[in-house]
């Protein structure tokens, strides 16, 4: 049940704290997002800087970098995803427990970046796994990563627990498995996961 926002503020001024189960649940969810200890390229250096005292991601409850996907909630794709590495990244994402979030950090992770024309670079990790927040930049500064993390927290906060728009892990119908691509002769097979990344219509592939 939703509480009127104005009434809540008014009650808060009087020293009465009103909350809903959804707010409490989402507060817990967004305040303890543990990232996976996993870096791919130069963006990882910025990610490491974000965890250190100067930028201090611990202020947002995300300082516990776990070396195993079993204990992590968030995957920061920090850098270039080569086609050699993509299957491993997707497999690691699959092995994380629900709820899981993905931040694609930097130009390479979101689109291939300066290596977009390279034969060996994946043109954005969102071709295989659902990405929650994209950060442009090459590399993005630690402030940008913090901003992305705050954006993710806001996104978690806004999610209803039931009905339309609820998170995947609360939806029994939603798929929990994201197929791992294989190394094909020329490209990864399949080149993208159609269920998370609808192939954009271009002049070349219009039917």
């Amino acid at each position: 049940m939703a509480v009127d926002e104005k009434l809540k503020i008014e009650l808060g001024k009087q020293g009465v704290l009103v909350t809903t189960l959804q707010e409490l649940y989402n507060w817990g969810r967004r305040s303890s997002v543990w990232p996976m200890n996993f870096g791919l390229a130069c963006c990882a250096i910025e990610m490491i800087a974000t965890t250190m005292a100067r930028y201090d991601i611990a202020r947002f409850g995300a300082e516990v970098f776990r070396p195993s996907p079993r204990q992590a909630d968030m995957m920061i794709i920090s850098g270039t995803v080569t086609k050699k590495m993509a299957p491993q990244v997707v497999r690691l994402y699959n092995q994380m427990g629900e709820p899981r979030y993905v931040i694609a950090m930097g130009a390479c992770a979101i689109s291939g970046g300066p290596f977009k024309q390279g034969y060996n670079v994946l043109k954005g990790i969102d071709r295989y796994i659902p990405v929650d927040v994209h950060i442009p930049g090459c590399p993005p500064r630690p402030e940008a990563l913090l901003e992305a993390f705050i954006t993710l927290q806001k996104k978690i906060d806004a999610q209803p627990l039931t009905g339309e728009g609820r998170p995947r892990f609360l939806d029994a119908e939603a798929p929990g498995e994201f197929p791992v691509p294989d190394q094909g002769q020329h490209d990864l097979e399949p080149p993208s996961n159609r269920s998370v990344w609808p192939v954009p219509i271009t002049l070349g592939n219009r039917e």
Binding site: S68, P69, R70, P87, Q88, V89, R91, L92, N94, Q95, E98, P99, F169, L170, G176, E177, V180
Partner: peptide, 18 residues
């Protein structure tokens, strides 16, 4: 807890490799 087990998820963890 919303359990969503599948073969890929329950596979032995070996740094992302099979």
């Amino acid at each position: 807890s919303p359990a969503k087990p599948n073969e890929l998820k329950n596979a032995t963890y070996e740094c992302g490799l099979v």
